[in-house]
Amino acid sequence: MSAKVTFSPSGVSIEVKPGTSILSAARKAGVLIQTRCGGNAACFMCKVKIRQDSDLLPIAEEERRKLAGLEEEGYRLACQAKARGQVHVEVPLDPLRAAVQKLLAKQAEENDELW
């Protein structure tokens, strides 16, 4: 039996052994999830949003404390959340890429207003 993890917005999917962390699955699939602590639940950078119908192993108390209620909104730490079955993960853009995209969108909007 295997688990399947699908990452958005890239649409990349990978089959992994049940119990594999979302961060490990992302690395195997070539999907970048930011982390600074090496997957030790210390930096909070690998926070991802998990679709509600996803099948994960239950959240551990340490992760629940770190998330401080965000887990109720679907957020998990990719280094701690472990796939059990089908999992759908929304990976946030890294901050630099998000800032560049925002600037480009603003420039495009301003250019449209000129015409």
Rank of each mutant, 00 (worst) to 15 (best):
K17L: 10
E71I: 06
T20V: 04
A3S: 15
E110H: 10
Q107I: 14
Q34H: 11
A108Q: 14
E62G: 12
E71D: 08
V31E: 00
E62R: 12
S10W: 09
L114R: 10
R76Y: 06
R64L: 07
R76W: 07
Q86V: 15
R64I: 01
P95N: 03
E63T: 04
R65N: 14
P58C: 00
D112Q: 15
K106P: 12
E72T: 07
A41Q: 07
G39Q: 04
Q34N: 10
V31K: 01
L104Q: 11
E61K: 15
A99T: 03
L93T: 09
C37L: 04
F7S: 00
R64E: 08
F44N: 06
A26M: 00
K28A: 08
E63P: 00
V100T: 05
E15A: 10
A78W: 05
Q101T: 13
E63H: 05
L77R: 05
D55R: 12
L70V: 03
V16I: 11
L56K: 06
Q80A: 13
G38W: 01
I14D: 07
A41M: 09
R36F: 10
S21K: 09
A68Y: 01
L67Q: 05
W115Q: 15
A78V: 12
S21E: 08
G39K: 11
E71K: 14
L103W: 10
R51T: 07
R65Y: 15
P18V: 05
S13C: 00
V16Q: 05
I59P: 03
S13P: 01
W115S: 14
A3Q: 10
R36C: 14
W115E: 10
R65V: 09
F44V: 02
W115V: 12
G74A: 04
F44D: 06
A98H: 05
L67T: 00
E109P: 14
V89C: 02
C43Y: 02
D112L: 10
A42Y: 13
K47T: 02
L23C: 01
P9L: 06
R84Y: 00
E63D: 05
A83P: 11
L103Q: 15
A105W: 11
E73H: 14
D55G: 12
S24K: 15
G30T: 07
I14H: 09
K17A: 08
A98M: 02
L114G: 02
Q101G: 11
I14S: 06
F44Y: 09
G38K: 02
D112G: 13
F7K: 00
I59V: 03
E61M: 08
S13D: 01
K66Q: 09
K4N: 09
P18G: 02
P58L: 04
C37S: 01
R27V: 09
A42K: 09
L57N: 06
A25H: 11
G38Q: 00
T6H: 04
D94P: 08
C46R: 12
V48G: 07
P58V: 03
T35C: 04
R36V: 13
S13H: 04
W115I: 14
K106N: 14
Y75T: 02
I59S: 02
A26L: 01
N40D: 01
T6L: 03
I50E: 14
Q107A: 14
